[in-house]
Design a protein around this nucleic acid. Structure first.
Length: 573
DNA sequence: GCCGTTTTCGGCCCGACTGTTTTCAGTCG
């Protein structure tokens, strides 16, 4: 994947151009960088298959940036970037990551003090050289503070890791007597797989008091800035959080402004402007006349479109769809009826089958599928054929217990069968045929070529016993890259063989990821959403998988486990 | 440099907060 490398170059070019006060180009480069960074497909592949023309189909990429991408693919460099960099040879990424430092400050630091790197900046600031160089004392202190925070910085956090803390804080805000309502904003509300900071938005007639009380929360470690309506703080778990408090009358407009990503908001505001109106965080306006502001629905409707679910607000076609009334009916957070990937103490899970089943029932599920590992995954004590048969008998007993208690809860028999490097499975077909549902997954030899890995998984899909491919790309967010596969080819094969692709809801997997989910949905491939639970509490991860499914435009009908188990089984091979 | 529900040329989102060049530019989201 060279997407990141290219995005970085384009992003740095946008900053270099901004330093030179070039008009409008910086935004164009930034937009292209953003767009490329969020592509699921390798941009090298896009170029290989469709050439320059395909590159120009990427939003924000036109002839000029297209050529630069082509140049990078062919020569591993971009001449114009090199030229700009020669003029201002500074470590942009390192400097711009310091809170409060932008293009203009970088330029001043370089011209006045010759500072090129974050290290040099830290040394200069610590020695008081910034003040001597014409900067203010406070600026110098803030830079030092910013750098010391960066050293402890974790970067982005996993959605599932941060959500419980965010929910606690949101509840505390909602409980304040001055607060009428409060919501998440930003990537948190969009359920993005990782979040960089936490955004809270509250509505109150007494904003300054709410801000003051928020600043006193035990979770707040230090304060970067505070005003009458806004504050930016560092939490004790070393993540930044924003709060914004305003008049309840602006609820809809403010939530829209604080939920959509930058590109979604720009698109909406541009659309308003085309109608001769103006959209800001307080409302939709014609001159000084307020047209809409109270609810999100009202504002979107006035703009001529349907309400857009938060998860879609990233300007990836949702605005066009909303204008045409063609948004998908997204799967809801309560639509899943059973969990299809659950490990137990028969292998590497912590709890028994019965404990897992009871916990799932408590959560309102109608069924679970038990999917312990199989024998070639030795470190988990994976089951062989004999042990699988024993486990099936155990499940029969548990189901009988439920029946005797007048419960309709059902434990289904399954396994997470290992796909060997050649694409065969480590359990014989005769045993697999006895299971209700078979999940298959890759757990070894991740570094095969794209061609071999694709062939390996396709061969597993061709097996008439294999119903679901678990965590289809094997990635661990921020830990391990996905193994290389031709996703188009896999999805085509899944469609033809009626194999289901899993959306694994475990916080560091979320695999398939959102872009691939959208592709699968477009191709009519069926999906399942499972937690991959190894302990009782993991069963609650389902919502993160549903969030990704929604980000991938999936509807209830696309997800097999939104059905009763009887209906679901009919859909399978 | 990109883009099109007024446009293939002429536009390009909007506002809060901070520090300080002290009347506003820079940064952030």
């Amino acid at each position: 994947m060279i997407n990141k490398e290219i995005a970085k170059i384009l992003y740095e070019m946008s900053i270099l151009l901004e330093m030179k006060e070039v008009g409008f180009k910086p935004r164009a480069y930034e937009k292209a960088a953003d767009s490329i960074e969020s592509l699921a497909e390798d941009i090298g592949n896009i170029y290989k298959h469709g050439g320059l023309k395909a590159l120009e189909d990427i939003p924000g990429v036109g002839p000029s940036i297209g050529e630069k991408i082509e140049e990078y693919i062919k020569t591993k460099q971009v001449k114009e970037y090199k030229k700009l960099k020669k003029e201002i040879p500074v470590d942009i990424e390192g400097l711009v990551s310091v809170e409060g430092i932008g293009p203009k400050t970088i330029l001043r630091l370089y011209k006045k003090l010759g500072i090129k790197t974050r290290d040099q900046l830290e040394k200069a600031a610590a020695a008081g050289k910034l003040v001597k160089g014409g900067f203010g004392k406070k600026t110098q202190d803030n830079i030092l503070k910013g750098i010391s925070f960066l050293k402890k910085e974790h970067g982005r956090y996993l959605l599932g890791e941060i959500m419980p803390i965010a929910e606690t804080i949101l509840e505390k805000i909602r409980a304040l007597p001055e607060v009428q309502s409060a919501e998440f904003g930003g990537s948190l509300r969009r359920m993005k797989e990782t979040v960089g900071d936490l955004d809270f938005i509250a509505f109150s007639d007494k904003p300054a008091e709410v801000v003051e009380k928020f600043l006193k929360f035990s979770e707040v470690k230090s304060i970067y800035s505070k005003g009458r309506h806004k504050a930016l703080v560092r939490l004790s778990i070393d993540i930044d959080a924003d709060i914004w408090v305003l008049d309840p009358k602006s609820t809809g407009a403010a939530l829209i402004g604080w939920t959509g990503d930058k590109q979604h908001n720009i698109a909406l505001r541009t659309l308003a402007e085309k109608k001769g109106w103006m959209l800001n965080d307080y409302g939709l306006w014609r001159g000084k006349t307020l047209l809409a502001s109270k609810t999100e629905e009202e504002v979107y409707k006035k703009l001529g479109m349907d309400w857009i679910p938060p998860e879609l607000r990233e300007n990836k076609g949702e605005i066009e769809a909303a204008l045409e009334g063609k948004l998908p009916q997204l799967i809801g957070y309560d639509d899943i009826k059973g969990d299809l990937q659950v490990q137990t103490d028969w292998t590497d899970g912590r709890n028994s089958i019965e404990e897992m089943a009871k916990a799932a029932k408590e959560l309102g599920h109608e069924y679970i599928l038990i999917t312990d590992h199989t024998k070639s995954l030795a470190m988990t004590g994976g089951s062989d054929e004999k042990r699988l048969v024993e486990q099936m008998a155990e499940i029969d007993k548990i189901n009988l217990k439920f029946k005797n208690q007048n419960s309709k809860f059902k434990v289904l028999k399954g396994a997470e069968v290992n796909i060997m490097p050649d694409g065969t499975l480590d359990i014989d077909d005769e045993t697999l045929a006895k299971l209700d549902i078979v999940g298959a997954a890759v757990h070894s030899k991740f570094n095969m070529s794209e061609k071999d890995m694709t062939a390996r998984i396709k061969r597993a899909m061709e097996n008439p016993n294999v119903d679901i491919i678990f965590h289809p790309t094997g990635r661990l967010i921020q830990k391990r890259e996905a193994y290389k596969v031709d996703m188009d080819d896999l999805l085509k094969t899944a469609k033809r063989t009626k194999t289901v692709m899993e959306i694994d809801a475990f916080p560091d997997r979320l695999d398939l990821k959102d872009e691939y989910i959208r592709k699968a949905v477009e191709m009519g491939v069926k999906l399942s959403i499972d937690t991959d639970a190894h302990v009782l509490v993991h069963l609650q991860y389902l919502k993160y998988g549903i969030g990704q499914a929604r980000r991938g435009w999936a509807e209830k009908k696309d997800i097999i486990n939104t059905r009763s188990w009887q209906e679901m089984l009919k859909l399978l091979k």
